[in-house]
Amino acid sequence: MSHDHPHRHPPQADHREPVSHYEWLGVALNELLMEKGLYTAQELREMMAEVEAVEPSTHGARVVARAWVDEDFRVRLLKDANTAVEALGFDSAATDLTVLENTDEIHNVVVCTLCSCYPRSLLGRPPTWYKSASYRSRLVREPRSVLREFGTQLPDNVTVRVHDSTAELRYLVLPLRPQGTDDWTEERLAELVTRDSMIGVTTARTP
């Protein structure tokens, strides 16, 4: 399932407006911090826009497509992802970034069992399911079952490696380049790279 087009989804039905104590707490704290001058309403709007501007298709997918066409870049990306990503003009978000390369023998998939750590500077805010209790609890125990729920059926001879993120170390999966794309341009290749394929719950789209 792809999520690389900026179409809209309904907000979580029961979270349309602040209703609970903790929701109001967030609103109240935000107001007080602005009144006390920590930041301005303008800075808040700009930050919200900055967060919204990070899309898997315009950030993470560009990194993957470059790695598919540029061998030197691929090597650098796997060795020192922060530096390689910054060289493309992307923020590596002040945390260590490690890129995990899928091969014919190894399929990588990422979770954060303790929370929701995620390479936000390349993929934006994490999807709801990434933060859900069932994904966080089950992926480390039964990854193949979870992958099947995402429609991903891997051959038995492929090893599945599950990587548990931390606040200080984020992961991006470098999916396998689909077959039949030898003469494709970098821009066209990037369209095959979905958010879910960079988390590792799916493979890249096939042409």
Binding site: H9, P10, T128, S134, R141, E149
Partner: peptide
């Protein structure tokens, strides 16, 4: 939560509410 049993993953996408 790692390793605990759990039900199917709800893969519904949600946009974040304004708050």
């Amino acid at each position: 939560l790692g390793g605990l049993p759990g039900g199917p993953v709800d893969r519904t996408e949600h946009d974040a509410a304004h708050w």
